[in-house]
Structure formats: C-alpha cells, structure tokens
C-alpha cells in the first residue's frame, strides 16, 4: 500500500467517524445524567437540514454550524420537556422524536433538494502540515474533525474534573440521593439533553456541510442509531467513543476499499461487518471486565425521576 492511499484511507475514516463522534459524545453526557434519548437520528437530521439551509443562504460556515447546533437543541427540548416535566417514558419519547425529526426535516427541506452549497473545507495548519506523512495525516483535517476531538476532551474534563460533572454523574447514578442533598435533578438533566441535541445537530450537519454539499431527506441513513450503540460500546467512557467511532467508520470505509481491491467475499457479507464487529467488540470488552462489576453504567439510566418533596 502506498503512502497517499494510506493517508486517503485515514482521511476517509475520519470523515466517516466524525458525525458519529459528535452524536455519541453528546448522547454519552445525556446518559451519564441518567437519561436515555433514542432520538439521536431525529436530532441529527434536523441539524443536517438547518446547517445546510444557513450555509446556503449565508455562505458562512460558522453560522451554519451554530444553526445546526441550535436546531438540534431546539428539537431535543421537546424530549427534555416531555421526559423531565411530564415524566414520559424515555424510550418511547426518543423514538417519537426520531420519527418527528425525520418527518419534519423531510417536509421543511423540500425546497432545498435542488440546491448545493460550498463545503466546509479542510485546513492546513501552517508549518505542521508540511511535515511529511505526519503533516497530511494529522494537521490537514477539517476544522470540525478537530472540534469533535476537542468536544470529547471537554466532556471528559467536565465529567471528571469539575464539580458540576461530579454532580451530573451522581444524578445519573442515584437521582433520589442527589435530590436529597439539594441538587436540581431536572435542571441538570434538561441541560444535558440540550447539550446532546446540540452535538447530534452538529454531527448531522457534518454530513451536509463537510461530506456532501447536498441535502436529501433521510440522509443520516441510520447513523444516529450507530451513535447510540457507540455509547454502550464505550462503556460510557468519553475517550472510548473515539476508538469506537474510528473502528466503526474504519470498517465502513475499509469494506468499500476491500471491494475495490476485489477481496473475494460477497459484498452483502462485507457490509454486515461493521454491525457484527460492534457486537463482537462489545462482547470481548465484557469478557475482559467479567470479574469486575461495571461501575460506569449510570444506575438510573432511563428511569423516571419525580421529586415528591
């Protein structure tokens, strides 16, 4: 394999992984607070649409990303309101959110299927990008790729290095106890859900602003569900999201390359690989952790909280 092909594959993987990193890191924070939001797909597709629309009208990538962020947040607030104030079942509400998001975006985006935009381009970081091999590999990425990695770090830092992060985790583990010592469970969860929506929105917008300069209904094509899987895969540990997203994005991209190299397996079976690999990795992770109790699963995940006092 020559060098430029290798670099190309790596860039391909980074493009395929980044939407997953955004969506999954947002959902990770949400789940750490004890909330399971299955509406990731719906929030992503709304972000993809709004990012596209704003980029189309303003040509300003910064505004486009902000719009995607706000769009994801806005639609996640429906989920937040229903689950936190009206105490609805989170699984069902999340599914409804996905349906609603897909329908809403398809409807609202009808006028934009004929359009195209200027993509957000990769940037060469001066000097560093000139280093042979390492330069194009690490220092010539899309700004949003760097942002995704930064967000993973920030979520880790927030969860494990700040007081609020500690409170959020304690809420996720035992909301009654956290409430008893005076923490506002609903407010923390509400904020976490909005953050999750914002990240999913940006993740979706990555598809329509970086990967392809088009808008099409259903263009997230199931990536929201993959992001949900990644959170479990990562055992709710932020940095493992990167690993999982790269593995998943990597297998997706590599199976396309394998076809190009004519590796003799039926394409259908090759296409199954990312899904099977996720399961296998998950199991092997569990086997390794077998004798330890898993302390990372938020105990209150998906449970409804209502303060009685």
């Amino acid at each position: 394999m020559n060098e430029s092909l290798f670099i190309n594959i790596i860039i391909g993987i980074s493009i395929a992984s980044t939407p997953l990193i955004f969506a999954a890191i947002g959902e990770l924070l949400v789940e750490r607070s004890g909330v399971l939001n299955l509406g990731v797909e719906g929030m992503m597709i709304v972000g993809a649409l709004l990012g596209f629309i704003v980029q189309f009208h303003t040509g300003n990538p910064f505004l486009a990303v902000v719009a995607a962020l706000l769009g994801g947040m806005a639609i996640s607030s429906i989920f937040a309101f229903l689950t936190q104030f009206l105490l609805t079942n989170q699984v069902a509400t999340g599914l409804a959110l996905t349906l609603f998001g897909l329908g809403f975006s398809a409807f609202a985006g009808r006028g934009y299927t004929e359009e195209t935009i200027v993509l957000i381009k990769a940037v060469d970081i001066p000097v560093l990008s000139d280093i042979p091999f390492i330069g194009p590999l690490l220092f010539s990425m899309n700004p949003l790729v760097y942002l995704a990695f930064l967000m993973v770090y920030l979520v880790w830092w927030f969860l494990f290095r700040t007081k609020q992060g500690l409170i959020l985790r304690s809420i996720g583990d035992n909301h009654d106890a956290a409430h008893a010592i005076g923490h506002n469970v609903v407010r923390y969860r509400f904020m976490a859900i909005l953050f999750g929506g914002a990240m999913a929105g940006v993740g979706g917008a990555f598809l329509s602003l970086v990967q392809v300069p088009i808008w099409g209904e259903d263009m997230t094509a199931g990536r929201g569900w993959i992001a949900l899987g990644l959170v479990v895969f990562a055992s709710w540990q932020p940095f493992r999201i990167i690993l999982g997203a790269i593995l998943f994005g990597g297998i997706t991209v590599l199976q396309l390359h394998a076809q190009g190299f004519d590796i003799r397996i039926s394409a259908q079976y090759l296409s199954m690989l990312p899904y099977l690999a996720t399961i296998i990795i998950l199991v092997s992770l569990r086997i390794r952790l077998k004798n330890k109790t898993n302390r990372t699963v938020p105990n209150c995940l998906g449970r409804i909280f209502h303060s009685t006092s």
Partner: peptide
Amino acid sequence: SSITQIFQGMLLF
C-alpha cells in the same frame, strides 16, 4: 409522505 411521520411523532408525543 413526510406528513405521515410528523403525525405519528406528534401522536406519540
């Protein structure tokens, strides 16, 4: 066709 999805989502909400 997206109208159907929007309604189903709202109905469930």
